[in-house]
Design a protein around this nucleic acid. Structure first.
Length: 440
RNA sequence: GGGAUAUUAGCUCAGUUGGUUAGAGUACUGGAUUGUGGUUCCAGGGGUCGAGGGUUCGAACCCCUCAUGUCCCCCCA
């Protein structure tokens, strides 16, 4: 019986042309993490279900992949990298604080996939988190890190949107709403960009929000201007909410620090609409997106979660971090047409002229490899046309031909396919010529 | 979870009111060219028309069911 070869919904194979790009991206991200002093961590794909549930909110819980294991659903696949970190922190009390870890691994969500928006069921997250620091200096560093990484990945213009849960609470308090209304409020203002003021009014109205309350709300949300102006206006409006004022102070502090760190202010925005669905955030929250390709969702997302680690039953540890959405960023690069069109990393193809020349070609290939050149040896003494055609298809820039003519002179022919010219060189000059041409 | 839409060669897609043996481009293989890629010319292989059922003398085409993909909402990376 024929088996239908297909991918599980929402999962993909990364073919070599994609992997070449992805590896380059991961390399840059890893380097940035380490430049900021983060250390690597990996955790298993599988977790006990009770470790995962109850952290993300109702929506999130539904998206956890559950496994039937020994007749019961006790295991699940990890949904993000933050909760596993919280588990690790609880189990290892001897970890030196502050603990700055990075983690690059796939996560799984039982979502409905949407390729154009870069939404998949299996995707890579690249997380960096600082555990054990209450100071918003840690939040500042995380935002600086996000800016550092997104700049390096050449995704075009992007915007990091920043908000604070305490400011959202302050808005709620100043509107005279109870704490239970906060989730509805956040959800409503989160939708403002999409369904407009009238849409949000209708929705919140249905949930029991009165017209004067909403008028106040929209006035608050329409605050515009420079960061300092927005902060000032916010402060004037939220005077009665201590929590709100605290949030404003923290954000203000962060923006001032970012300016000192030379982060361009036009890449940052105070966005009072930003709410974020995950339950565990307690302080700053931030998300970033591409300006040219806004239909692709958030490229990065994160914030402060000072009570998540304590939810495992031990003492609370403050923590703040972000995830860099590798697949989202790769989607941006693909849609910008920056996908590598290469299927090969080989720099030099050594052809085999005929059966009598196999050993000589092997020797040349070995010597090139010893010098670090990415070298392929053709495996069959077929027509040179075919061997050249292979190099062309794989976009291998250099081809070496070693036949009777070359042997007689103790030389090899090196053809540069990018310009279509060839020359005969002896083995010593061959190496130094290639070192010159292929050095990066 | 709600809605829309599609599925024909490895890939991108034509296919007339239902009518013989389902086409093109591209990719692949071979040849023109037995020491050299890209361009050109010639030839060739490659299909259960997503699956199953129904209507019909006859179905890629009409009807039903299912599967899968894609898009939008929701939510997010």
């Amino acid at each position: 019986m024929k088996i239908d070869a297909r991918n599980f919904k929402g999962t993909r194979d990364y073919l070599p042309n994609e992997m070449i790009l992805r590896n380059q991206m991961i390399e840059k991200i890893r380097r940035s993490f380490e430049v900021f002093g983060f250390v690597p961590l990996e955790t298993p794909a599988l977790e006990y279900l009770d470790v995962l549930t109850g952290k993300y909110g109702e929506e999130g819980d539904k998206l956890i992949y559950r496994l039937n294991y020994k007749g019961g659903s006790v295991a699940g696949m990890k949904y993000d990298l933050t909760v596993p970190l919280a588990r690790v922190m609880t189990q290892h009390n001897d970890i030196v604080l502050p603990f700055k870890r990075y983690q690059i691994q796939p996560v799984w969500r039982a979502d409905r996939p949407q390729v154009r928006q870069g939404r998949f069921r299996e995707f890579y997250q690249c997380d960096a988190d600082i555990v054990g620091v209450k100071s918003v200096l840690a939040d500042t560093e995380i935002i600086a890190l996000i800016h550092n990484i997104l700049s390096q990945l050449e995704i075009g213009q992007f915007l990091i949107r920043i908000n604070h849960r305490k400011i959202l609470s302050g808005i709620r308090e100043s509107l005279g709403l109870k704490e239970a209304m906060e989730i509805d409020l956040c959800r409503g203002i989160d939708k403002l960009d999409k369904i407009g003021i009238d849409g949000v009014k209708e929705e919140l109205g249905r949930l029991g929000f009165t017209d004067p309350v909403m008028d106040n709300l929209f006035q608050l949300l329409s605050l515009e201007g420079s960061h300092t102006e927005v902060f000032k206006q916010l402060k004037d409006t939220l005077t009665k909410s201590e929590t709100g004022l605290q949030g404003i102070d923290e954000l203000k502090n962060i923006f001032e620090s970012l300016e000192i760190m030379n982060i361009p202010m036009e890449a940052l925005k105070i966005d009072l609409h930003l709410a974020r669905g995950l339950d565990y955030y307690t302080g700053t929250i931030y998300e970033s997106s591409s300006i040219d390709l806004p239909h692709i969702g958030s490229l990065t997302g994160g914030g402060r979660y000072d009570r998540l680690i304590g939810s495992f039953g031990s003492k609370d540890l403050p923590a703040v971090g972000t995830t860099i959405g590798l697949d989202r960023i790769a989607t941006v690069l693909t849609q910008l047409g920056k996908m590598a069109d290469k299927n090969s990393v080989t720099q030099i193809l050594v052809t085999i002229f005929d059966e009598t020349m196999i050993h000589q070609s092997m020797k040349i290939a070995s010597s090139l490899r010893k010098h670090g050149f990415k070298t392929e040896l053709y495996y069959e003494p077929v027509k040179l046309k075919k061997q050249f055609s292979y190099a062309d298809k794989q976009k291998i820039p250099f081809v070496i031909v070693l036949g009777p003519d070359e042997t007689a002179k103790g030389q090899v022919t090196l053809k540069d396919l990018t310009v279509g010219k060839q020359q005969q060189l002896d083995s010593g000059t061959l190496i130094s010529y290639l070192e010159d041409r292929l050095s990066e």
